[in-house]
Amino acid sequence: MQPLLQIESLVRSYAPPGGRAVPVVKIDRFELAPAEQLALSGESGSGKTTFLNLIAGITSPDAGRILFDGRDVTALAASERDKLRAVGIGTIFQSFNLLQGYSSIENIELAMMLGRGVDRPFAEALLQRVGLADHRNHRPGQLSIGQQQRVAIARSLANRPRIILADEPTGNLDRRNAETAIELIRSLCTEERAALIVVSHDRQLLSGFDRVIDFDQLNQARAKFGGSAGSSAAQTAEGG
């Protein structure tokens, strides 16, 4: 079976202010099968977010290829990458990144507007699936942290993507909510036959995955960034 995602000789460097460019991500080979669920563990600042941004087409690589369903994402024009991100890739962020002025249902429908078009019944079904049918008109500020993350999970599936990229999706949740969230993400991906890459520094949380990769071993880059500030610095290397 052809892999959904293939990465070959991927390099992304970052030059700190006044400094020389050093690689942040350097991955020789990586593959993910369709509907496969994979956990990437690793310390903060190890380049995991940059890796996910590279897959999502938010950040461009310096070298290498990223093949999504056989298409080389790195060779696509920016607008083509945007299209792919809109319909093929769902993203869940550590800080949820919900749109503050929009209700739960609108957050999902807006993602649909930018993707395959609004499908109100499906949006309602997603909200029901994450247990927030009664909170469809609540704005993020009116939801608990756990509820916000569940809206973000529902939104990531709004356009029936082929893959979900979850970047520290439980970073802001307590243990019980974190386990519930991971379970929810996994079961929804199974139902929707979407592949999943979950990135987390919490190895215990990832123990339920069949395939867990230590990102520090996958990534051959020697440059490391300390803490979230360092992570942000790495992310600024280039926008999509």
Partner: peptide, 15 residues
């Protein structure tokens, strides 16, 4: 949380 049955099957669509 409710059952997944209400989530509709995938719709094919060109980018």
């Amino acid at each position: 949380m409710s059952d997944a049955a209400s989530v509709k099957p995938q719709q094919p669509s060109g980018a």
